[in-house]
Write a protein that binds this DNA or RNA. Structure first.
Length: 574
RNA sequence: GGGGGCGUAGCUCAAUUUGGUUAGAGCAUCAGAUUGUCGAUCUGAGGGUUGCGGGUUCAAGUCCCGUCGCUCCCGCCA
């Protein structure tokens, strides 16, 4: 139908007759002459209708916004005073010789201009209209380019794209599963995959050597701005490799993606152990754009009168850390109250502070508990300067680190245009929560030291960018003894292990190559690279915070017939 | 599961603090005018279950209780 996209029309086409298809972005009727801004996915161009063309002119008078047109006409250069410098196609216009109204349109529920704000629920309900907006479409188009570049890179490096099942079995650990009832096997359920983890390991055992997939994953957990119930992972697995091989290759891939799509040169990714990340940044995904660091001060506070400090200082499981914020002495009472509210969200009981008016003049509600000597020792330790404020949290290691880490991100100044990637390595294998052991990564992660399984480190690694985890992976367990030892520690009985993971344990018997891999959150990467603030912006049809689709009204009730067929009974009374 | 914010015309908001006449504005829509506009302009018109349900009151958009929806955060997300 068309010969060119609207956005492609330029001065080189002047004098040529072209055909355009698209939507009427805006119609301006000046009485004696009509202008139509025609829009397609590549841009907008002005169509002019002159009254001499009587029939077309009459037709054009009936044209409203969002009508779908096919326009044929001659490209004319605009005289100097009629050039619109705000438009990419502002130096030319198309003089209509023929207009076909392919379809009419009712007025859209919102104006398709970026200067008019529209609430997100309205946009989602009419997503197909929202997608016509250039800035919305750009992000979807960007994602397509990103995915294409990933395919190209992995194909160039010998990876095979292989699909794994969506209908699979429920897993005992991890997130809540989305379940699918089986019709032919009453009372049995499939689960939608939380990730293709076990399948990709089985592919390695099948000799595939290098696998990747853009895998849809499903997790029935509460949502966040950067979390959807269904999301996409770039899932990768390799055989006969070590940790370093995976990290090197993936780092190269990420550098290539940034170069090709954003013309940004990423540096070599620094490495940081999990322990160091928690110690200095109070996070396993530190935002290195912020220069502030946490400093331990417990050793200085073991004997102080202030019980809140001294009791934690003498508890081996405790941590007292300080965060120095340059020029923070100007923070108001209200600011500090807000910061205290923030750290309390992470479980901290309070936020102590010290304003450094001068190195010999410190203002603080806890000053009365501290000798001058200790105050000076603290100032030296954190490198305090005039007009700084120093915040303190005293609690168990986790609460202190995470709460002060969150405060660091909240108050820290950063260059919003900077890209600061890194690898976080040497994660602990497990952590103990309420007396139960949990895998930090997942139960198939290889330990660094079999002799210190419970308290030792793993061969897991996370790629982190600007305070967000882009992806995480590990070298996997490749022998049945280690795998069983891990299940034991996680309190998964041999019977349960056989039942739930029997196929994996069986497979490990028949010759398993050393292997490992990584999975990236595609939505999150696309969001960050496209400069979006929510992953919903890089998903064509996203769900709301309560996991519903405002466009289709999913999830919905179903007929009794359907339920009966699936052998499912609904009990909504609780 | 817990906490915060929001919900008034098709859209974005005002009126809520301190209950009081007929709930306003801009954009959009419709009609008319208009030959160089480009977020066109000018004149006029139509448009409301104040999310929903209950309560207090002479009187509720405004106060109280419940409920639904959207959103952000904590928990959760191996």
């Amino acid at each position: 139908m068309r010969s060119h996209y609207c956005g492609e029309v330029n001065e080189r086409l002047v004098g040529k007759t072209i055909t355009l298809c698209g939507w009427v972005h805006r119609a301006r009727n000046l009485g004696g002459m009509i202008f139509l801004d025609l829009r397609d996915r590549e841009g907008i161009v002005q169509v002019v209708v002159h009254p001499e063309q009587k029939e077309i002119f009459k037709l054009a008078q009936t044209i409203r916004n969002e009508y779908v047109l096919c326009v044929t006409g001659k490209v004319n250069a605009r005289p100097g005073d009629m050039i619109n410098t705000k438009m990419k196609t502002g130096t030319i216009e198309v003089e209509a010789a023929e207009i076909k109204i392919l379809n009419t349109a009712e007025p859209p529920p919102f104006v398709l201009d970026n200067y008019v704000p529209v609430s997100e629920d309205v946009r989602l309900k009419y997503r197909y209209i929202d997608l016509r907006r250039p800035e919305v479409f750009y992000r979807i188009q960007f994602r397509s380019k990103l995915v294409r570049a990933m395919h190209n890179f992995l194909d160039d490096h010998g990876f095979l794209e292989i699909e794994t099942p969506h209908l699979t079995r429920a897993t005992p650990e991890g997130a809540r599963d989305y379940l699918v009832p089986s019709r032919v096997q009453p009372g049995h359920f499939y689960a939608l995959p939380q990730s293709p983890q076990l399948f990709k390991q089985l592919l390695m055992m099948g000799g595939v050597d290098r696998y990747y997939q853009l895998a849809k994953c499903f997790r029935d957990e509460d949502l966040r701005a950067d979390r959807q119930p269904e999301f996409t992972q770039l899932d990768i697995e390799m055989s006969f490799i070590k940790e370093e091989d995976v990290m090197q290759l993936m780092e190269t891939m990420m550098q290539r993606l940034f170069k090709d799509l954003l013309e940004v040169t990423l540096p070599a990714f620094p490495r940081m152990t999990y322990a160091e990340a928690m110690q200095k940044y109070g996070s396993d995904k530190p935002d290195l754009r912020i220069s502030l660091e946490l400093v331990d001060v417990a050793d200085l506070l073991k004997t102080v009168e202030f019980k809140v400090f001294s009791s934690v200082a003498n508890d081996p499981a405790g941590r007292i850390a300080a965060l120095r914020v340059p020029k923070g002495a100007t923070f108001s009472r209200k600011n500090i109250d807000d910061y205290e509210t923030l750290v309390k969200k992470f479980g901290a009981k309070g936020l102590a502070w010290m304003k450094v008016n001068d190195l010999n003049d410190v203002q603080s509600p806890i000053k009365k508990f501290l000798s001058d000597e200790i105050v000076h020792a603290i100032l030296r330790r954190v490198g305090a300067q005039k007009e700084d404020i120093i915040f303190f949290v005293a609690d168990n290691y986790r609460v202190t680190s995470e709460s002060l880490g969150a405060l660091r991100v909240h108050v820290g100044e950063k260059d919003a245009s900077a890209w600061k990637p890194l690898w976080v390595t040497d994660f602990p294998m497990f952590e103990k929560v309420d007396g139960h052991w949990h895998s930090l990564h997942h139960p198939f992660t290889a330990p660094q030291d079999m002799n210190n399984l419970a308290h030792g480190l793993s061969h897991a690694y996370d790629m982190v960018l600007n305070g967000s985890e882009l992806g995480g992976g590990s070298i996997r367990i490749d022998n049945i003894e280690t795998q069983q030892a891990v299940f034991n520690l996680l309190n998964i009985s041999e019977k349960e292990a056989r039942e739930k993971f029997g196929f994996l344990l069986e497979a490990l018997k028949y010759g398993c190559p050393p292997h490992g891999g990584i999975a990236f959150g595609l939505d999150r990467i696309a969001m960050m690279m496209a400069g979006a603030s929510s992953i919903r912006d890089v998903i064509a049809f996203p769900k709301t915070a309560t996991a519903s689709c405002l466009l289709t009204n999913a999830p919905s009730t179903v007929s009794d017939e359907q339920l009966k067929e699936l052998h499912v009974q609904v009990n909504t009374k609780e």
